[in-house]
Deep mutational scan, measured.
Amino acid sequence: RELRDAFREFDTNGDGRISVGELRAALKALLGERLSQREVDEILQDVDLNGDGLVDFEEFVRMMS
């Protein structure tokens, strides 16, 4: 339940997936600093298991585990 709530916080447009822009904004909020595009792309590449360029809830749960 906590992970579902956190996912909703990251998924600002409510489409059920976290985009690169949403991921960048969430990481900035969490870390208090802006990451480079390359750093965000590397994180997305590690987390995006199905290669669609987005983070779905299952991928998010794995990222947070």
Score class of each variant (00 low, 15 high):
37 Q>K: 12
47 V>Q: 12
40 V>R: 15
10 F>C: 07
11 D>Y: 01
15 D>E: 02
50 N>T: 11
64 M>A: 15
21 G>D: 15
61 V>T: 10
42 E>K: 06
34 R>W: 01
61 V>A: 10
12 T>W: 02
18 I>Q: 13
37 Q>N: 15
62 R>L: 05
55 V>F: 13
35 L>C: 08
58 E>F: 03
18 I>R: 00
36 S>W: 06
23 L>F: 05
56 D>H: 11
31 L>F: 13
32 G>N: 05
56 D>C: 04
5 D>A: 05
26 A>I: 00
37 Q>L: 11
38 R>C: 09
40 V>G: 10
63 M>F: 09
38 R>W: 08
22 E>I: 01
35 L>V: 11
47 V>E: 07
10 F>A: 15
45 Q>R: 13
23 L>R: 01
29 A>I: 05
9 E>A: 06
31 L>T: 14
9 E>M: 07
31 L>H: 11
59 E>S: 09
25 A>Q: 09
62 R>T: 06
62 R>H: 05
40 V>M: 13
32 G>M: 01
23 L>N: 05
28 K>V: 14
14 G>R: 11
1 R>Y: 06
4 R>E: 15
8 R>Y: 07
40 V>K: 10
8 R>S: 12
29 A>S: 11
21 G>K: 06
34 R>K: 15
9 E>R: 14
8 R>C: 07
45 Q>Y: 06
62 R>F: 05
23 L>W: 04
44 L>Q: 12
53 G>P: 06
58 E>P: 11
1 R>N: 14
26 A>E: 00
7 F>T: 01
7 F>S: 01
7 F>L: 02
21 G>W: 03
55 V>I: 06
7 F>W: 07
14 G>Y: 00
17 R>L: 13
4 R>K: 14
53 G>W: 03
60 F>W: 11
46 D>H: 03
4 R>V: 08
7 F>A: 00
43 I>Y: 03
33 E>G: 12
19 S>F: 02
59 E>Q: 11
10 F>E: 02
29 A>D: 14
6 A>D: 01
29 A>K: 14
54 L>M: 10
53 G>A: 08
31 L>Q: 14
27 L>A: 15
59 E>C: 13
63 M>S: 07
54 L>Y: 06
59 E>W: 05
64 M>H: 14
46 D>Y: 02
41 D>R: 07
19 S>I: 02
26 A>G: 13
42 E>T: 03
14 G>C: 04
13 N>Y: 00
50 N>G: 14
55 V>H: 03
5 D>V: 06
26 A>Y: 06
12 T>K: 10
7 F>I: 01
22 E>A: 03
14 G>V: 01
43 I>F: 04
30 L>P: 07
18 I>E: 00
7 F>C: 03
21 G>P: 13
58 E>T: 09
3 L>P: 02
34 R>M: 05
19 S>V: 02
56 D>A: 12
59 E>P: 08
23 L>H: 01
5 D>K: 09
21 G>H: 04
53 G>L: 05
41 D>F: 09
48 D>R: 15
10 F>V: 10
29 A>F: 05
16 G>N: 15
53 G>F: 03
23 L>G: 06
60 F>D: 01
58 E>W: 03
38 R>E: 05
21 G>T: 12
64 M>W: 14
3 L>C: 00
44 L>T: 12
63 M>G: 06
52 D>H: 10
43 I>K: 13
36 S>E: 12
11 D>I: 00
25 A>W: 06
26 A>W: 02
56 D>E: 15
56 D>W: 02
51 G>D: 13
31 L>K: 15
